[in-house]
Design a protein around this nucleic acid. Structure first.
Lengths: 351, 351
DNA sequence: TTGTAAGCGTTATCAC
DNA sequence: GTGATAACGCTTACAA
């Protein structure tokens, strides 16, 4: 069995309280007893039982992180950043996967497992803003993302509209005027897709350009395969376009692949820009221009806010809203002006 | 404050023990009292305090998973699979990142945090087989990977040698004879690199072909950038080659990129094959042929073995070794026979 | 400066 | 069938 405070106390010939004082750095201890206790601790290899401490203190030193799935690179990189941010503060992280399933997300928020963590960082996907009230939970909660804005909890998010507008403006600056968007979600009002498309529209309108519905392509899932499929569908319509704005990097990478397979050159014929700045986007061929929407800052802020809530005693501060900074990352896929001579760019617009 | 067994007992007018019995499904309870208790539980929204239960039982229902970093796709996908496997069994997972740092790995194994988990699944990278004895820890431990084979703990790994040989044989079958390997590690005896290269050598020797040291290219890190850099270095040497075996998919994807950038066609001029079967390998351009080395099976087996150890009472069974099955996944990058007419394939071998 | 004892919320032992 | 009561290992008033 593991050694306990009691074992150490016996060996050091002091009371259990004194050992506890030493372990917890209580200052007023005679040096002689302190060293005796430390020797006993070393001799026995004593380690405090964190479960017992957790029971007594009502805090475990563990926070939960709930994301759709780690095999989506964005969430893997987010989880990485959250774990690092927590670790810097001596906290460990328990991870839950929701698969973006609404029922699972609901279960998770009320699961007895929450009893084992001091709070939760939650990136919902299945739940929407209409479910905000369901997040009135009895423990510290930080909500991430673009699905729920009105929950009675702290919220850390990115500047989706502004960032998407910046990406679109950059395409316009490269001389692109027929900018396709891939990954739209039917009937969505909040959510990453809706907000980013809002930014896209704003940038076009700002430039006095029409928003052509034929260029807004839907795709519920945001995997590589969907990016490729959606672009193939777009090519089949014959609608001309000279840029693709993938609503995330994965879509954009899939799009590049489909374009190349169809003999369309990136960026000579079609510029491509994504959103998220995944690690791999730097190494695609061509390298992908994208938006760094502040993932690391979001992770760090979320952990900080959560720990502040956990430490909170007495009256609770009202929910806080934080928006991380973003920046446009220019890489090869954004290209210069269109090459008007290439056959792809000479096709006629549809009737 | 959260409600306790005691609160429920008062409301249901029974003893705390009876409530506990109901919660834990003890069979011999009068139906009338049982329903009364269940009603009280529902009325109060009672949830058992898992920390208290953990203290009492000596088990928390949480296992640890230690990997180098989640932003490496392989480990993200592994963590995903481990979490799913644990979840199927009602267990949650706490994740630690080591960055492959030896000291950090050592700290982690003896950290007080282990007190909060019932056992650990550990994928070492900084530690080597010479450190095996350091893994004689006092809690259930399952070691993953190719770094440590002789630890006094269960070990789940993949068939590196056989799988690498299979990949190499397939390249030979496609008519490739000058197969470069990228990602070798200087002086390594165990480890993914060494074992996979052993398989590569075996397949060549089996085919009666020489092993050309000039075709074995080193790279400590296995990121996309390294794959690209290594291949550029190889191209600069002027040594002819007609295939690249990336020791993992990320290297192989980086290699494809560098080849294409240099005007070398994949697979017409150079076949490429990777190792790991990452999700994204299916969507590269061209899609990447690779080895599925049994990641999901490894995750499930690791969780199963760990839980068996946790449940173990009395004498401990000796360490167990498990090797997952693998399979070769053939995609576009492997190609057919070399195109002898392309300029790249007509270059002269170096003196 | 150090010791005693209560209690965190469970489960388990044993009476009744 | 059900109820007291004693741990599990720790922190913390409160004493000394």
């Amino acid at each position: 069995m593991a050694t306990t405070l009691h074992d150490v106390a016996v060996l050091a010939k002091v009371s259990i309280k004194t050992v506890s004082n030493v372990v917890n750095g209580y200052p007023y201890i005679k040096d002689s007893t302190k060293t005796r206790v430390l020797e006993a601790i070393a001799a026995l290899g004593y380690q405090p039982n964190l479960t017992a401490r957790g029971l007594r203190l009502g805090r475990t030193g563990v926070i939960g992180l709930a994301v759709p799935e780690l095999r989506l690179s964005y969430f893997a990189e987010l989880a990485d950043a959250v774990i690092r941010a927590a670790d810097r503060r001596g906290i460990s992280v328990q991870i839950e996967q929701t698969n973006g399933d609404r029922d699972r997300e609901l279960d998770l928020v009320t699961s007895p497992r929450r009893q084992l963590t001091d709070g939760l960082i939650f990136s919902p996907l299945g739940l929407g803003n209409e479910d905000a009230a369901l997040l009135a939970v009895g423990y510290p909660l930080v909500v991430l993302g673009e699905r729920i804005f009105d929950a009675p909890a702290d919220h850390v998010t990115m500047r989706n509209v502004e960032a998407a507008a910046a990406a679109t403006r950059r395409l316009l600056a490269a001389g692109r005027t027929r900018i396709a968007v891939i990954g739209a979600h039917e009937g969505e009002v909040y959510g990453s897709a809706a907000l980013r498309i809002r930014g896209y529209r704003e940038a076009l309108q700002e430039a006095g350009l029409p928003v052509d519905p034929a260029l807004i392509r839907h795709s519920d899932m945001w995997h590589r395969a969907n990016g490729a499929t959606t672009v193939r569908g777009l090519l089949e319509t014959g609608v001309p376009f000279d840029a693709v704005f993938g609503l995330n990097d994965t879509l954009a990478l899939g799009a590049i692949r489909a374009l190349q397979a169809a003999g369309v050159r990136v960026p000579e014929d079609v510029s491509v820009v994504g959103f998220d700045n995944l690690d791999e986007s730097e190494y695609s061929h061509p390298s992908l221009s994208t938006i760094d929407a502040g993932r690391d800052e979001i992770a760090d802020t979320a952990v900080r806010l959560l720990l502040e809530r956990i430490a909170e005693t007495g009256p609770k501060a009202p929910p806080r809203r934080v928006e991380a900074d973003f920046r446009l990352i220019e890489r090869e896929s954004i290209g210069a002006a269109a090459d008007a001579d290439h056959p792809f760019n000479r096709q006629d617009p549809p009737a």
